[in-house]
Structure formats: structure tokens, C-alpha cells
Computed example of a mutant assay.
Amino acid sequence: MSNLLKVSSSPHVRAKDDSSIIMLYVIIALMPTTLFGIINFGIRALLLIAVCITSCVLSEFLFEKAVGKKNTIGDLSAAVTGLLLALNLPHTLPVWQAVLGSVFAIVVVKMLFGGLGQNFMNPALGGRVFLLISFAGTMTHFEYDGVAGPTPLTSIGGGNVNTLDMLIGRTAGTIGETSALCILIGAIILILLGVIDLVIPGVYILTFSIFVILFGGHGLDTTFLVAHLCGGGLMLGAFFMATDYVTSPITPLGKVLFGICLGVLTGIFRFFGNSAEGVSYAIIFSNLLVPLIEKITVPRAFGISKEVKSNE
């Protein structure tokens, strides 16, 4: 009888897919960019991916064991966090730093705030930014074909970029950010499976494109615009991290405002900040704004109106 009657407060929303199925879909959608990253950067990329996933899953298991909580590694969220974190790291990063970032992402950002559904920012990006602040040298050291150098995004100002290479992924960068084409294939998979919709990433990309045209200093230069869209992890962030269920708004208007915040902040960080990369910081700052965004965009219940003050 207990399996038939469930008493809870409204709203009553039911879906056939549980968290583990949704996370499995995300892992499947990340396979094109993951496999390309391994092919592009070699065995070192595979090692970091394995280390991050293992460290995240083990961190969650040990934390829950220590505090006596029910084991939740079966929902695959820790594995997704590890995979996303690895895809946001340069393949040259020391292994011990990858482990440290993984532990920070799971224990500090996720578990200390209550676990899945309670974290206030995307755990993978929290781990990445922690590593960027703590180990800026190794986190900004990129190699391609054995040659160290800047990412294409850093070189855009000088005009020495190949947008086709950036689209395909034959460039330096983090393991998972280089191939915009593979990321878009994964995004299509998520959309077809019904895991995400186009509102947040669409508004994000459109807002950022307008910002580039207005403040990028090149006007309507399509090469410059495409280079900015394909570089710096914008596509990976837009489709796979900005759309995180826990840290993004659920109201229709809230999603639009969230996407606008992402686009504007990314533009500000890229064009007026000291770093060419602005996606991670933009998503984290926007995550912090989600409670406010939802508060001002929550639909009013039918039959409820604003209180009218009398002049008495």
C-alpha cells in the first residue's frame, strides 16, 4: 500500500526518467567531445578523465560513508561532475591537481551543501575555478602537437586564427572545449532526448553575439564572431553546464534572464577583464543570481492579484 499512496505537497510532477537516466544521457551526449579530446591530446587526456571521474565518485562515496548518509553514487551525478571537470582541464595538468579539484568539486561545492539538488553552483565549474585561482600557471599552460602556446581565443586580437580549425577542434585548449562541432553533436543528442531545451543556450549565445558586435571592436566581423563563439569553452558551457537543472532557473522568463546574464557577463569578462576566458566565471556568478531571478519571475497563481492599497 505504501508504494501506491504517496502524500506530498504540490506541485505533483511525474517523469519517467530518474536522475541516473538523465545523467546517463548527459554522459552519452558528452562522448563525441570526450573521444575527440582523447584523440586530439592523447593518452594524457584519457588519464585525466579517468582520474577526475574516479576521484569524484570516490569522494562522494567516502564523504557519505563518513557522515552516515545513504550512498548516492548510483545516480551518476558524481561521474558526470568528474567528466565535465576533466573536459575543462588542460591535458598537461598534474594529476594531483586534478584530484584536488575533483575533491573540492564534490565535497565543498556539492556535499557540504546537501548533495545533489542542493548545490548553489555547478560543481565541475566550481572545481575548475578553484584550480584556476590556486594553480594559474598549470591551468593556463596549453600544448598542441607537443608545442606550447596560447589558445586561439587569446590570439584572436592579432587576427591569427583559423575558424575552421576551431570548429573542428585542431587547436590548443582544454580537453573538451576545442571541437565546437563535437559539442554541438552532443547538444543535439540532449535536445532530442528531451534533457535540455534551447532557451538558455540560445539566449546565451545570442546575447553574447550581440555583445561581441557592439563592444568587440570589430563590428559585424563574422570571422571574429565565429572565433569567439567556438573558443574559450563557450559552447561546452552553454549546452552542458549553464543548463544544469539544479543551478539554473525553472521559470520561462527566468531562463531568458539567466541567458542574458550569461551572455553579458561572458562579454564583460572577455573584453574588459584580464583573462580571455570568461565562461566559467559568468556561469558561476549567474548561478548565484538564480534565487533572485526565480523570485522576480515566478508566475502568479490563478486568482491571486497584487494587494491594492486603499486611500483611507
Rank of each mutant, 00 (worst) to 15 (best):
V67H: 15
G158T: 14
G114L: 06
I73N: 02
F130Q: 05
A276W: 10
R128E: 06
L262N: 03
P249I: 01
C261W: 06
L214C: 13
I73Q: 09
G117N: 13
I175L: 04
V99E: 09
A187Y: 00
L220Q: 10
G137E: 13
V226C: 08
T243M: 06
T247C: 08
D197V: 07
R14I: 14
V199N: 11
L131N: 02
L125C: 07
I183M: 14
A79L: 12
F142T: 00
P249H: 02
S9N: 14
A238C: 05
L89E: 05
L131M: 13
L198G: 14
P150K: 12
I175N: 00
M111Y: 04
P123V: 03
F208K: 00
S275E: 05
A238W: 00
V161W: 01
A15P: 13
F142D: 00
I38C: 06
A242E: 02
L229A: 06
L190M: 04
I191H: 02
Q97W: 10
E294Q: 13
I283R: 03
T266N: 00
D165E: 11
G127K: 01
K110H: 10
V290C: 05
F61Y: 15
T33H: 01
A148F: 13
D18G: 15
R300S: 13
I196C: 04
T178Y: 04
R14M: 15
G232Y: 01
C182R: 02
V308R: 13
G186Y: 05
T72Q: 11
L125P: 02
S10V: 13
V308D: 11
E294Y: 08
N122M: 10
G169S: 10
P299Y: 04
I73R: 00
L288E: 00
S155A: 15
M241Y: 07
F61W: 14
P291V: 10
I185H: 03
P90T: 04
